Simulated scan of single mutants.
Amino acid sequence: MMMRSCCRPLERCFGRINGDGLLWHMDLKPHASGDFSIAVVQANSSLEDQSQVFTSPSATYVGVYDGHGGAEASRFVNAHLFSYLHKFSKEQGGLSSDVIKRAFSATEEDFIQLVKRSLPVMPQIASVGSCCLVGAISEGELYVANLGDSRAVLGRRSFDGEKSSVIAERLSTDHNVSCEQVRKEVESLHPDDQAVVVYIRGVWRIKGIIQVSRSIGDAYLKKPEFNRDPIFQRYGNIVPLKRPVLTAEPSIVTRSIRPHDLFLIFASDGLWEQLSDQVAVEIVFKNPRAGIAKRLVRAALQEAAKKREMRYRDIKKIEKGIRRHFHDDITVIVIYLDHQKESFHSKGTLGSITAPVDVFSYNSDDAEEKQCFLI
Protein backbone atom coordinates (compact mmCIF):
# COMPACT_ATOMS: atom_id res chain seq x y z
CA MET A 1 0.00 0.00 0.00
CA MET A 2 1.51 3.29 1.16
CA MET A 3 3.78 1.94 3.87
CA ARG A 4 7.41 1.00 3.73
CA SER A 5 10.08 0.01 6.26
CA CYS A 6 11.60 2.82 8.24
CA CYS A 7 15.10 1.86 9.27
CA ARG A 8 16.67 5.24 9.96
CA PRO A 9 17.87 6.30 13.43
CA LEU A 10 15.07 7.43 15.72
CA GLU A 11 15.91 11.13 15.57
CA ARG A 12 16.06 11.20 11.75
CA CYS A 13 12.99 9.00 11.28
CA PHE A 14 10.83 10.34 14.06
CA GLY A 15 11.76 13.96 14.48
CA ARG A 16 11.95 16.08 17.59
CA ILE A 17 11.92 14.57 21.06
CA ASN A 18 10.82 16.69 24.01
CA GLY A 19 13.26 17.12 26.88
CA ASP A 20 11.40 15.09 29.51
CA GLY A 21 11.97 11.89 27.51
CA LEU A 22 8.34 10.76 27.54
CA LEU A 23 6.66 13.36 25.32
CA TRP A 24 6.93 13.27 21.51
CA HIS A 25 5.29 15.66 19.10
CA MET A 26 4.94 16.76 15.49
CA ASP A 27 3.98 20.41 15.51
CA LEU A 28 2.42 20.78 12.06
CA LYS A 29 2.33 18.94 8.74
CA PRO A 30 0.07 19.37 5.67
CA HIS A 31 -2.74 17.08 4.59
CA ALA A 32 -5.16 17.24 1.67
CA SER A 33 -7.48 19.85 3.20
CA GLY A 34 -5.47 21.54 5.93
CA ASP A 35 -2.79 20.80 8.53
CA PHE A 36 -2.39 18.21 11.26
CA SER A 37 -0.53 18.03 14.54
CA ILE A 38 0.28 15.00 16.72
CA ALA A 39 1.56 14.47 20.26
CA VAL A 40 1.89 11.53 22.61
CA VAL A 41 3.00 11.16 26.20
CA GLN A 42 3.96 7.82 27.73
CA ALA A 43 2.78 6.70 31.16
CA ASN A 44 3.02 2.90 31.01
CA SER A 45 6.31 1.00 31.22
CA SER A 46 5.82 0.16 27.54
CA LEU A 47 3.94 2.62 25.36
CA GLU A 48 0.63 0.93 24.51
CA ASP A 49 -0.78 3.76 22.38
CA GLN A 50 -0.04 3.64 18.66
CA SER A 51 -1.16 6.11 16.00
CA GLN A 52 -0.75 7.04 12.36
CA VAL A 53 -1.78 9.58 9.75
CA PHE A 54 -1.76 8.87 6.01
CA THR A 55 -2.25 11.75 3.60
CA SER A 56 -2.66 11.89 -0.19
CA PRO A 57 -4.04 14.56 -2.53
CA SER A 58 -7.51 12.99 -2.32
CA ALA A 59 -7.80 11.53 1.18
CA THR A 60 -6.60 11.68 4.78
CA TYR A 61 -6.65 8.69 7.12
CA VAL A 62 -6.18 8.90 10.90
CA GLY A 63 -5.72 6.04 13.34
CA VAL A 64 -5.46 5.98 17.15
CA TYR A 65 -4.98 2.55 18.74
CA ASP A 66 -4.99 2.30 22.52
CA GLY A 67 -3.64 -1.07 23.62
CA HIS A 68 -4.34 -2.86 26.89
CA GLY A 69 -2.64 -5.87 28.45
CA GLY A 70 0.38 -5.08 26.29
CA ALA A 71 1.25 -3.34 23.03
CA GLU A 72 1.07 -6.35 20.68
CA ALA A 73 -2.49 -5.70 19.47
CA SER A 74 -2.13 -1.93 18.99
CA ARG A 75 1.12 -2.42 17.07
CA PHE A 76 -0.50 -5.09 14.93
CA VAL A 77 -3.39 -2.77 14.07
CA ASN A 78 -0.90 0.00 13.31
CA ALA A 79 0.85 -2.28 10.82
CA HIS A 80 -2.16 -3.81 9.06
CA LEU A 81 -5.41 -1.81 9.23
CA PHE A 82 -4.55 0.95 6.75
CA SER A 83 -3.34 -1.65 4.25
CA TYR A 84 -6.75 -3.31 4.36
CA LEU A 85 -8.52 0.04 4.04
CA HIS A 86 -6.49 0.74 0.92
CA LYS A 87 -7.03 -2.76 -0.50
CA PHE A 88 -10.79 -2.89 -0.02
CA SER A 89 -11.43 0.71 -1.09
CA LYS A 90 -9.51 0.00 -4.31
CA GLU A 91 -11.54 -3.15 -4.89
CA GLN A 92 -14.87 -1.39 -4.29
CA GLY A 93 -14.05 1.82 -6.14
CA GLY A 94 -13.85 4.08 -3.13
CA LEU A 95 -14.22 4.40 0.61
CA SER A 96 -17.47 3.37 2.28
CA SER A 97 -18.79 2.08 5.62
CA ASP A 98 -18.66 -1.44 4.19
CA VAL A 99 -14.98 -1.01 3.28
CA ILE A 100 -14.19 0.14 6.80
CA LYS A 101 -16.08 -2.77 8.38
CA ARG A 102 -14.27 -5.26 6.13
CA ALA A 103 -10.90 -3.72 7.07
CA PHE A 104 -11.67 -3.97 10.78
CA SER A 105 -12.89 -7.56 10.39
CA ALA A 106 -9.82 -8.64 8.40
CA THR A 107 -7.47 -7.04 10.94
CA GLU A 108 -9.28 -8.76 13.80
CA GLU A 109 -9.17 -12.15 12.07
CA ASP A 110 -5.47 -11.82 11.29
CA PHE A 111 -4.68 -10.93 14.89
CA ILE A 112 -6.72 -13.87 16.22
CA GLN A 113 -4.72 -16.14 13.91
CA LEU A 114 -1.52 -14.63 15.30
CA VAL A 115 -2.76 -15.37 18.82
CA LYS A 116 -3.38 -19.01 17.90
CA ARG A 117 0.12 -19.38 16.47
CA SER A 118 1.77 -17.59 19.39
CA LEU A 119 -0.15 -19.23 22.24
CA PRO A 120 2.35 -22.06 22.96
CA VAL A 121 5.23 -19.63 23.57
CA MET A 122 3.28 -16.53 24.63
CA PRO A 123 -0.03 -17.53 26.25
CA GLN A 124 -0.64 -14.03 27.61
CA ILE A 125 -1.19 -12.73 24.07
CA ALA A 126 -4.73 -14.14 24.26
CA SER A 127 -5.55 -11.41 26.78
CA VAL A 128 -3.99 -8.53 24.81
CA GLY A 129 -6.30 -6.15 22.98
CA SER A 130 -6.62 -2.67 21.55
CA CYS A 131 -9.20 0.04 21.16
CA CYS A 132 -9.31 1.26 17.58
CA LEU A 133 -10.38 4.72 16.37
CA VAL A 134 -10.17 5.56 12.67
CA GLY A 135 -11.09 8.71 10.78
CA ALA A 136 -11.12 9.14 7.02
CA ILE A 137 -11.77 12.23 4.91
CA SER A 138 -12.42 11.57 1.25
CA GLU A 139 -14.28 13.65 -1.37
CA GLY A 140 -15.83 15.91 1.24
CA GLU A 141 -17.12 13.02 3.34
CA LEU A 142 -15.95 12.21 6.86
CA TYR A 143 -16.01 8.66 8.23
CA VAL A 144 -15.37 7.89 11.90
CA ALA A 145 -15.17 4.26 13.01
CA ASN A 146 -14.58 3.20 16.58
CA LEU A 147 -14.01 0.25 18.88
CA GLY A 148 -13.51 1.06 22.56
CA ASP A 149 -13.25 4.40 24.33
CA SER A 150 -10.90 6.52 22.27
CA ARG A 151 -12.84 9.48 20.93
CA ALA A 152 -13.24 11.76 17.93
CA VAL A 153 -14.58 15.27 18.54
CA LEU A 154 -15.35 17.93 15.94
CA GLY A 155 -14.85 21.64 16.59
CA ARG A 156 -17.60 23.56 14.79
CA ARG A 157 -17.80 27.34 14.47
CA SER A 158 -20.79 29.06 16.06
CA PHE A 159 -21.83 32.71 15.93
CA ASP A 160 -23.36 34.60 18.83
CA GLY A 161 -24.15 37.93 17.26
CA GLU A 162 -20.86 39.09 15.72
CA LYS A 163 -18.73 37.02 18.08
CA SER A 164 -17.36 33.70 16.85
CA SER A 165 -17.09 30.72 19.20
CA VAL A 166 -16.71 26.95 18.91
CA ILE A 167 -19.01 24.04 19.73
CA ALA A 168 -17.86 20.48 20.41
CA GLU A 169 -19.64 17.72 18.49
CA ARG A 170 -18.76 14.16 19.52
CA LEU A 171 -18.53 11.90 16.49
CA SER A 172 -17.73 8.56 18.11
CA THR A 173 -19.45 6.32 20.64
CA ASP A 174 -17.56 5.36 23.81
CA HIS A 175 -17.90 1.58 24.04
CA ASN A 176 -17.29 1.53 27.77
CA VAL A 177 -19.61 -0.07 30.32
CA SER A 178 -19.18 2.91 32.62
CA CYS A 179 -21.83 4.37 30.26
CA GLU A 180 -25.28 3.12 31.25
CA GLN A 181 -26.40 2.75 27.65
CA VAL A 182 -23.42 0.52 26.78
CA ARG A 183 -23.92 -1.47 29.98
CA LYS A 184 -27.55 -2.16 29.06
CA GLU A 185 -26.49 -3.12 25.53
CA VAL A 186 -24.08 -5.76 26.86
CA GLU A 187 -26.61 -7.05 29.40
CA SER A 188 -29.31 -7.35 26.73
CA LEU A 189 -27.01 -9.59 24.68
CA HIS A 190 -26.49 -11.90 27.67
CA PRO A 191 -29.88 -12.24 29.37
CA ASP A 192 -28.86 -15.60 30.87
CA ASP A 193 -25.72 -14.18 32.52
CA GLN A 194 -26.51 -11.86 35.42
CA ALA A 195 -22.80 -11.37 36.10
CA VAL A 196 -21.80 -10.32 32.58
CA VAL A 197 -21.21 -6.77 33.90
CA VAL A 198 -20.23 -6.29 37.54
CA TYR A 199 -19.34 -3.32 39.70
CA ILE A 200 -15.93 -3.94 41.22
CA ARG A 201 -13.59 -1.55 43.05
CA GLY A 202 -15.67 1.46 42.05
CA VAL A 203 -15.76 0.61 38.32
CA TRP A 204 -18.16 -1.26 36.04
CA ARG A 205 -16.36 -4.10 34.20
CA ILE A 206 -17.34 -6.90 31.83
CA LYS A 207 -16.79 -10.17 33.72
CA GLY A 208 -15.08 -8.06 36.36
CA ILE A 209 -12.10 -7.63 34.00
CA ILE A 210 -12.45 -5.06 31.24
CA GLN A 211 -14.35 -1.81 30.75
CA VAL A 212 -14.52 -1.63 26.95
CA SER A 213 -17.11 -3.73 25.14
CA ARG A 214 -15.51 -3.61 21.68
CA SER A 215 -11.90 -4.11 20.66
CA ILE A 216 -9.39 -5.76 18.39
CA GLY A 217 -7.97 -8.82 20.15
CA ASP A 218 -8.91 -9.86 23.71
CA ALA A 219 -9.26 -13.33 22.20
CA TYR A 220 -9.99 -15.05 25.51
CA LEU A 221 -13.16 -12.96 25.86
CA LYS A 222 -14.30 -13.79 22.34
CA LYS A 223 -13.23 -17.38 21.68
CA PRO A 224 -14.14 -20.08 24.24
CA GLU A 225 -11.37 -22.35 22.95
CA PHE A 226 -8.72 -20.08 24.45
CA ASN A 227 -10.21 -20.43 27.92
CA ARG A 228 -10.27 -24.19 27.53
CA ASP A 229 -6.65 -24.37 26.37
CA PRO A 230 -4.42 -25.85 29.15
CA ILE A 231 -1.56 -23.52 28.18
CA PHE A 232 -3.73 -20.43 28.67
CA GLN A 233 -5.26 -21.85 31.85
CA ARG A 234 -1.79 -21.96 33.40
CA TYR A 235 -1.43 -18.28 32.56
CA GLY A 236 -4.68 -17.30 34.31
CA ASN A 237 -7.68 -15.03 33.71
CA ILE A 238 -9.93 -18.02 33.02
CA VAL A 239 -13.43 -16.80 32.10
CA PRO A 240 -15.88 -19.54 31.11
CA LEU A 241 -17.80 -18.30 28.08
CA LYS A 242 -21.09 -19.38 26.58
CA ARG A 243 -20.63 -16.79 23.83
CA PRO A 244 -18.29 -13.83 23.16
CA VAL A 245 -18.65 -10.94 25.60
CA LEU A 246 -16.70 -8.52 23.37
CA THR A 247 -17.03 -7.73 19.67
CA ALA A 248 -14.87 -6.20 16.94
CA GLU A 249 -17.85 -4.65 15.11
CA PRO A 250 -17.14 -0.89 14.85
CA SER A 251 -19.69 1.86 15.21
CA ILE A 252 -19.43 4.10 12.15
CA VAL A 253 -20.55 7.70 11.64
CA THR A 254 -20.64 9.21 8.15
CA ARG A 255 -21.00 12.94 7.72
CA SER A 256 -20.42 15.54 5.02
CA ILE A 257 -17.80 18.17 5.83
CA ARG A 258 -19.61 21.50 6.29
CA PRO A 259 -18.38 25.09 5.95
CA HIS A 260 -18.42 25.74 9.72
CA ASP A 261 -16.46 22.55 10.55
CA LEU A 262 -13.05 23.78 11.75
CA PHE A 263 -11.04 20.82 13.05
CA LEU A 264 -11.15 17.30 14.42
CA ILE A 265 -9.54 15.92 17.58
CA PHE A 266 -8.77 12.19 17.62
CA ALA A 267 -7.44 11.03 20.98
CA SER A 268 -7.08 8.03 23.25
CA ASP A 269 -9.08 8.00 26.46
CA GLY A 270 -6.05 9.30 28.35
CA LEU A 271 -6.94 12.77 27.11
CA TRP A 272 -10.67 12.52 27.74
CA GLU A 273 -10.15 11.31 31.30
CA GLN A 274 -8.71 14.77 32.00
CA LEU A 275 -10.47 17.16 29.58
CA SER A 276 -14.09 17.51 28.49
CA ASP A 277 -14.97 17.67 24.79
CA GLN A 278 -15.79 21.38 25.06
CA VAL A 279 -12.63 22.33 26.95
CA ALA A 280 -10.52 20.49 24.36
CA VAL A 281 -12.09 22.22 21.35
CA GLU A 282 -11.79 25.63 23.02
CA ILE A 283 -8.06 25.07 23.55
CA VAL A 284 -7.65 24.29 19.85
CA PHE A 285 -9.87 27.19 18.78
CA LYS A 286 -8.09 29.82 20.90
CA ASN A 287 -4.46 28.89 20.22
CA PRO A 288 -2.02 28.84 17.27
CA ARG A 289 -1.92 25.74 15.11
CA ALA A 290 1.74 24.88 15.50
CA GLY A 291 2.16 22.52 18.44
CA ILE A 292 -1.57 22.38 19.20
CA ALA A 293 -1.61 18.62 19.91
CA LYS A 294 1.25 19.09 22.36
CA ARG A 295 -0.72 21.92 24.01
CA LEU A 296 -3.68 19.56 24.53
CA VAL A 297 -1.42 16.91 26.06
CA ARG A 298 0.09 19.47 28.41
CA ALA A 299 -3.37 20.69 29.43
CA ALA A 300 -4.31 17.09 30.27
CA LEU A 301 -1.13 16.61 32.31
CA GLN A 302 -1.76 19.86 34.16
CA GLU A 303 -5.25 18.65 35.04
CA ALA A 304 -3.88 15.27 36.18
CA ALA A 305 -1.34 17.08 38.37
CA LYS A 306 -4.02 19.36 39.79
CA LYS A 307 -6.14 16.37 40.83
CA ARG A 308 -3.18 15.09 42.88
CA GLU A 309 -2.37 18.58 44.22
CA MET A 310 0.90 18.54 42.30
CA ARG A 311 2.61 20.95 39.92
CA TYR A 312 2.97 20.23 36.22
CA ARG A 313 6.77 20.25 36.47
CA ASP A 314 6.58 17.63 39.21
CA ILE A 315 4.46 15.18 37.23
CA LYS A 316 6.91 15.52 34.32
CA LYS A 317 9.66 14.11 36.52
CA ILE A 318 7.80 10.88 37.31
CA GLU A 319 9.18 7.84 35.49
CA LYS A 320 7.20 5.70 33.08
CA GLY A 321 5.40 2.85 34.79
CA ILE A 322 5.06 4.80 38.03
CA ARG A 323 3.48 7.63 36.08
CA ARG A 324 0.59 5.32 35.12
CA HIS A 325 -0.75 5.85 38.66
CA PHE A 326 -1.28 9.53 37.73
CA HIS A 327 -2.44 9.36 34.11
CA ASP A 328 -2.69 7.01 31.13
CA ASP A 329 -0.73 7.04 27.88
CA ILE A 330 -2.13 9.98 25.93
CA THR A 331 -2.24 10.30 22.14
CA VAL A 332 -3.72 13.33 20.38
CA ILE A 333 -4.09 14.06 16.66
CA VAL A 334 -5.61 17.38 15.57
CA ILE A 335 -6.80 17.62 11.95
CA TYR A 336 -7.59 21.11 10.67
CA LEU A 337 -10.27 21.39 7.96
CA ASP A 338 -9.50 24.23 5.56
CA HIS A 339 -11.66 22.73 2.78
CA GLN A 340 -9.45 24.15 0.01
CA LYS A 341 -5.76 23.33 0.21
CA GLU A 342 -4.09 24.16 -3.12
CA SER A 343 -0.49 23.73 -1.91
CA PHE A 344 -0.61 20.01 -1.07
CA HIS A 345 1.06 17.98 -3.82
CA SER A 346 2.67 15.07 -1.95
CA LYS A 347 2.14 11.53 -3.23
CA GLY A 348 1.48 10.50 0.33
CA THR A 349 3.17 10.63 3.71
CA LEU A 350 2.71 8.43 6.70
CA GLY A 351 3.19 9.75 10.21
CA SER A 352 3.31 7.08 12.90
CA ILE A 353 4.10 6.85 16.58
CA THR A 354 5.69 3.68 17.86
CA ALA A 355 7.27 2.77 21.16
CA PRO A 356 10.39 4.90 21.62
CA VAL A 357 12.55 1.90 22.47
CA ASP A 358 12.63 0.66 18.88
CA VAL A 359 11.61 1.39 15.32
CA PHE A 360 8.40 -0.36 14.40
CA SER A 361 8.64 -1.13 10.70
CA TYR A 362 6.01 -0.96 7.97
CA ASN A 363 6.43 -3.18 4.95
CA SER A 364 4.64 -3.46 1.62
CA ASP A 365 5.29 -4.22 -2.00
CA ASP A 366 4.81 -0.56 -2.86
CA ALA A 367 8.26 0.76 -3.74
CA GLU A 368 7.40 4.44 -3.49
CA GLU A 369 9.38 6.45 -0.96
CA LYS A 370 7.37 7.36 2.16
CA GLN A 371 8.19 9.24 5.33
CA CYS A 372 7.86 8.10 8.92
CA PHE A 373 7.66 10.41 11.92
CA LEU A 374 7.58 9.97 15.68
CA ILE A 375 6.10 12.85 17.55
Rank of each mutant, 00 (worst) to 15 (best):
M1D: 14
M3D: 12
R4I: 12
C6G: 11
R8K: 11
E11V: 14
R12K: 05
G19I: 14
L22G: 06
M26F: 06
M26Q: 11
S37Y: 09
F54E: 07
A59M: 02
V62D: 03
Y65R: 04
A71L: 03
A73N: 05
R75N: 13
H80M: 11
Y84H: 13
H86Y: 09
A103D: 00
T107G: 00
I112N: 04
V115Q: 02
R117T: 02
L119D: 08
V121K: 13
Q124G: 10
I125F: 01
V128G: 01
L133C: 12
G135R: 04
E141N: 12
L142K: 06
A152D: 06
G155W: 08
S158F: 06
F159L: 15
D160Q: 13
L189T: 02
H190T: 05
P191E: 10
D193F: 04
V198L: 11
G217R: 01
D218H: 03
I231V: 15
Q233R: 15
L241S: 04
L241I: 02
P244I: 10
P244F: 08
A248W: 08
E249F: 11
P250F: 01
D261C: 13
S268R: 09
W272E: 10
Q274T: 05
V284S: 05
N287R: 06
V297E: 08
L301T: 10
E303I: 03
R308A: 11
H325V: 02
I335A: 09
I335G: 05
L337H: 09
S343W: 13
A355L: 09
P356G: 09
N363G: 10
D366F: 02
E368Y: 04
C372V: 12
